[in-house]
Design a protein around this nucleic acid. Structure first.
Lengths: 244, 244
DNA sequence: GTCTATAGTTGGATAGAC
DNA sequence: GTCTATCCAACTATAGAC
């Protein structure tokens, strides 16, 4: 089984034989993950081929199979690299909020923001990489149940549990079922936004723009999403929710 | 090029040679569409193979290519068969509402319902077929942009235009951009619900249930969706919307 | 109209040199 | 670690018999 905890060995190569010094200095494994992120985002899991990924990475199919073992494992690693930190930031936000609140119930807005904002934050990686990751993640939500069903559970199960509990505490008058349904609808909103392939709204001159993402800043989309979702969560089950 | 406007030729076969009388009496073309609906729903466009579809239909690959010409065209016909009537029902509802209103603005709830309810109505086809179609449609929204981007525009463009206009009339205080964003988020809610592969909410004993759809009636899910979406639409852009 | 058979590609994964 | 070369399975599409 290949190594699993090396990301910074860069120059500590075993013996000789020209390191990555081909074009970029990046590690092959990392280049493969970047390429996989892009190709999986563009074509989905079934539509992507190992050949396309490895060509984009400037490596061979064998190199990818050496590092990951299979196409499915490559997808797994591609997701884990980003979802782990993403979910940590979500939890950290929620933890901080609960600490500040000192036992008092949280504002619904702040819970929703703790769930959504980390998705829109660029961090370590580049802006492009962040955008690509969002698309892969969105695909995973709506891709072949056969391949990624277990992965979805593993990647997102704990987050779901945590946030459903937080929502239930913030909306004590709602039943468990109402909370869960509201949360599901909220996930739908998020997935559709980050997927990037949004519904075309014709009319605005015959432009190509399949996505209006470019026209709006992430921050303003995020703010509107939060407003939409919070109002929606309060409205489930007919009880229209007292103004806060 | 194959015929294109025949759905009811059933018994008017050209000459001899045992009609479909194999197992069921259904036309091969129709059986292929049913099977395609199922396989595309389960595996997505790239993941589905003509072999899987034709085997499920009890026909040969050649039969499918005779009727449709290619895998992509098969997908197209599979969608058109259901999306056409679906969108007609949406428009018919909206037309009826506007006629009743006699020039006065429509209630937001009724517009949202005109958009969502037809998706949840079983009609001509069986309950199973309806459920399968929903999944295919959801896949199309989030599947390979390369293959179905133009189809999305063709299938849903007019509907989007019509409903965005109706929403704008019902929410005169909102800007065009706010309406479009709210509509996008609403599509996200709808797509995620009909996709069937919803987020798992762990905790309820270690059951398998990846979808709670089975636990709730369509009607109650629909009612809650409408409440959620209506509240969300009113809330976009911070102006929290006067109670109606 | 539907079949069998096959052409021609492309896929994931592996063997073995370096 | 990374490559080239290869295996073999599966795919889409077509040809041609009936």
């Amino acid at each position: 089984m290949p190594n699993s905890a090396d990301s910074q060995i860069a120059d500590s190569r075993p013996t000789r034989l020209a390191p990555p010094e081909g074009g970029r200095g990046a590690d092959t494994r990392e280049r493969l993950l970047d390429a996989a992120e892009q190709i999986f985002a563009e074509r989905g899991f079934e539509g992507a081929s190992m050949r396309a990924v490895t060509q984009a990475a400037g490596a061979s199919v064998s190199a990818a199979n050496y590092h990951f073992g299979s196409k499915e494992a490559l997808l797994r690693e591609t997701l884990l690299r980003r979802v782990g930190p993403l979910n940590e930031r979500r939890i950290a936000r929620l933890d901080a909020l609960e600490e500040d609140a000192n036992g008092r119930p949280l504002e619904l807005e702040t819970i929703v923001e703790a769930f959504l904002r980390p998705v829109f934050e660029e961090h370590a990686a580049s802006v492009d990489a962040t955008a690509r990751f969002r698309q892969v993640a969105a695909r995973i939500y709506s891709d072949p149940p056969g391949v990624v069903s277990a992965m979805k559970r593993e990647l997102f199960g704990p987050i779901v549990t945590r946030f459903v509990a937080a929502l239930a505490a913030a909306l004590p008058e709602k039943s468990r079922g109402e909370i869960e349904l509201g949360f599901q609808l909220t996930v739908g909103v998020m997935v559709h936004v980050i997927s990037g392939h949004l519904v075309t709204v014709p009319g605005q001159e015959e432009g190509e723009c399949d996505c209006w993402t470019a026209r709006l800043s992430d921050e303003s989309v995020l703010q509107q999403m939060i407003a939409y979702v919070v109002a929606g969560l309060r409205a489930v089950s007919g009880s229209r929710g007292v103004a806060r």
